[in-house]
């Protein structure tokens, strides 16, 4: 099942499962990131991480490592017409992203 990190800006999805444990999972659940809730990708931070989402009517930003714990079912692929450029993967961003995956 795809996770939140597989979505692109303006994609909409329904949360299927919140993995992880302890403080992270509890915080996510407490903030309304629960199975069945709708979530949309708003924008990516300048250095590629974190990413801003829209859930339960408010804006929430999550690190890559946090968003990976959230499995989703995409309901609507974004039109990409909101001015947000597709993900660019320069060397610098790839390096940063690798550091992010390490943990």
């Amino acid at each position: 099942m795809p996770s939140l990190t597989d979505l692109s800006p303006s994609d909409h999805a329904i949360i299927q499962e919140v993995r992880g444990h302890g403080a992270l999972r509890k915080r996510l659940l407490d903030m309304g990131v629960i199975p069945g809730a709708e979530i949309a990708v708003v924008r990516v931070a300048p250095l590629g991480d974190p990413v801003e989402y829209l859930v339960k009517g408010y804006h929430l930003s999550l690190r890559h490592s946090e968003a990976q714990q959230i499995l989703v079912h995409t309901v609507m692929a974004g039109a990409g017409g909101d001015g947000t450029a597709p993900e660019k993967t320069g060397r610098w961003r790839r390096w940063l992203a690798r550091r992010g995956h390490g943990r």
Binding site: A23, L24, R27, L28, M31, P50, E52, Y58, H59, L60, S61, L62, R63, E66
Partner: peptide, 8 residues
Amino acid sequence: SLFVLELP
């Protein structure tokens, strides 16, 4: 620390 941050 967690990041999980609301952008109010």
